[in-house]
Nucleic acid binder design. Sequence first.
DNA 1: CTGAAAGCGCTTACAG
DNA 2: CTGAAAGCGCTTACAG
Lengths: 341, 341
Amino acid sequence: VNRKSSIATVADVARAAGVGAITVSRAVNGNGYVSEEKRKRIAVAIKKLGYRQNQAARVLKGNRARMIGVIIPDLADSFFGKCASAIESYAASHGYMTLIVASNRDRRLQRREVDMMVGQNIAGLIVVPSFPAVDIKPLTEMSVPIVAIDRPAPGTAADEVVVENLEGSKVAVSHLIDHGHQRIACVGYDKDSFAISRRIQGYVAAMKGARLKPEIYDEVSTLDETSKLLRKLLKKIDHPTAIFSLNNVATQHVLCALRHLGISVPKKMALIGFDDLELASLLPSPLTVVRQPALNLGNQAARLLFDRIAGTKMTEGDFGVKLVLPVEFVIRSSCGCAAGN
Amino acid sequence: VNRKSSIATVADVARAAGVGAITVSRAVNGNGYVSEEKRKRIAVAIKKLGYRQNQAARVLKGNRARMIGVIIPDLADSFFGKCASAIESYAASHGYMTLIVASNRDRRLQRREVDMMVGQNIAGLIVVPSFPAVDIKPLTEMSVPIVAIDRPAPGTAADEVVVENLEGSKVAVSHLIDHGHQRIACVGYDKDSFAISRRIQGYVAAMKGARLKPEIYDEVSTLDETSKLLRKLLKKIDHPTAIFSLNNVATQHVLCALRHLGISVPKKMALIGFDDLELASLLPSPLTVVRQPALNLGNQAARLLFDRIAGTKMTEGDFGVKLVLPVEFVIRSSCGCAAGN
DNA sequence: CTGAAAGCGCTTACAG
DNA sequence: CTGAAAGCGCTTACAG
C-alpha cells in the first residue's frame, strides 16, 4: 500500500525542521523542553507536510488511545441520548473521541463491546451498568478509569453519578397525597435496576408516611400490558385515582393507555411521571414530572472521568467519588394543580 | 509499564500452541489456510492466555481500524439520535465500534473531529454534511468510504441516503389545501440545508399547483422568534389558517407558541409538521405529520458503508449510490381530519 | 536541552 | 500448507 508513502511521519518532520525525531515528538505532545526556535521550525514543518500523529503507533508504544467509551442501554432513548450527548461534547473539548455503544440490555453483546474497547485501549469508560460489574472486569484489570451513571456499579472502584431517585419520588407522591389522593398506583418496569428500585422506595416511603397502602405494578413494560393493567384497575369501584409512573417510557404508555380508555387527566386520574418528556407541557393536561438533569449527569460524569484520566485523583484504595444530583419537581397540571406552565 | 507483561501476544499464543506467529494471525483474522488441528490448538491457547488482538498494532501495520465514524449535527436531537442508534447496532453486529461525534453545526469543531478520525484510521464514515465537502477531504484522500445521510455531499463520491423531502411536503401541503385552506404559512429554519430546501420546494409546488401564494418564513429558529411571527401573522384579518412546519424543532416551537397564544389546533389553525414527535398522538389535537424513517435511514446507510468496506462495491469512477427513502404521511387530526389515531 | 537506538505487537511478502 | 524476518510510526530510557 504505497499511497502510505505520501503520509508524513515524525521522521519526515524532523528532517524538514532539521531536528531529531524525539524533539518533534516532544513538541507535538508538549512533554519535555523544546527551545522556542525549534518549536517554531517544527510547527512550520508540520503545517507544510500536513503531518498528523499516528494514533496507532502512539498507542502501540503503551499510551492510551485518546478515546473514551460510553455504554448505555439504548441510544435512541432521549434520556440516555442526552447523557451521551453531554459526554461527547465534554470529551471533544478535551481532544478525545467517544466510542458510544448501546448494550440493548443484552449481556453477551455488552461483553463483546467491552472486549473491543479493551482492544482499542480506551482511556476511560462511562457506563450505565445494566449487568454485574464482572462484565467490565477486563477494563478494570487494565486500570482504565470508570464512571458509572444512573446506577452504581457495586464491587468496583468506579466513581458514580446518580440522581435523587428516592427523594424525587417521595416529593412527587407526597404531592399527589396532598391533592387528597388515597389510592395511588405506582407503574413501571425494570425494578431490578437501582434507579427504579429507589424510585419505588420513595413511593413506598411517601405512602407509608401517610398511612396509605402502596399499590405497586412494577412489571409493566409494554403499552399493551399497561392498557390491560389500567383496564383492570378501573373496573374496581374503589380504584386508584392517581398514578405515579417510574420512567419516561412508562409515563408514555400510561398516557397512551389513558387516552385510549378515554380517561381524562387529571380529572378521572391524576398522573405524575419520573423523567421529563419533550412535549410534556403541550399535552391536554400538561404533565407534572420529576425532571432529571440528563445533560448535567453526563457532564459531571465526564468531568470525573477526565479528572481520573489526568491523574488528578488517586484510584488506589479509593472507592470512588459518589455524586448524587438533585432532581427538579416540575408542577404543571396533570397532578391536579390548576395552573399549567 | 511492566503490567503489560501479563498481556498475551501472538508470540505467546504461538508458543503455547506450538505454531508460528503468522499461523496465529491467520487463524485470528480468518485469512489463508490453517489446518483444522492447529486451528483448534490455537483456539485453546487463546482462551487459556486470554489473548486479545491488539488493534493498535494491527492498524499500525496498515489495516484500517475496526471502527467507523458518525458525524451528526446534534446527538440529543431525537431524529439524529435514532439514525445514530441504527448505525451503531449495524456496526456492532459487524464487529465494528462506532465513533459518534456531534458537529454542533460548528465548522471548526467538525474539522478537528475529521482530523482525529483520520488519526484513528477509521474504516468508514457516515456523515450528515453540514458543511462543504472540502471539510471531509482528509478522509476522502485516504479513500475512506463515506455515506452521506439526510443531505447529499456534492463534490464527493459518497453514497447518499436521503428521504422524499419534496414529495412528502407536497402531499402534506396538498392535504391542507384539500381541507380548504387558502393561506398556508411555511415555517422553519436552516433553509440552506438540502433537506429543508427540498421541503420548501415541495411546499411551493403544492401551493403553486393550487394557484395559492406561498408564504415562507424560513428563518425562524427559536421559540421566541416563532411566537413573535405567529403574533404578527394573527394580527391580520386575513391571516393564514394553516401552518406547515419544516422539521421537528420548528413543529415544537409552533405548538408551544400556539398554546401560549391560546390558538386552538386545528380549529383556529391547522398544522402539519415534517418529522414525527414522540408524543404527537397524545396532544390535544393529535399531530398530523410526515414521518421520516429515521431507523431505516441509519440502517441503509450502514449497509451501504459496510458494502464499501467489504469491497463489494467499486469506488473508482463511480459517483456513489443514491438512495431516496419514502416518507409516511400520518394523518391524525391537527390537519383538520376528525378521527385521531 | 537534545539525539540515536530499541522495541511496542502485529502482518506482509517471500521462501520452503 | 506453514514459518522467520522485517518494518509500520511512534516514544522511552539512556547518553551526551
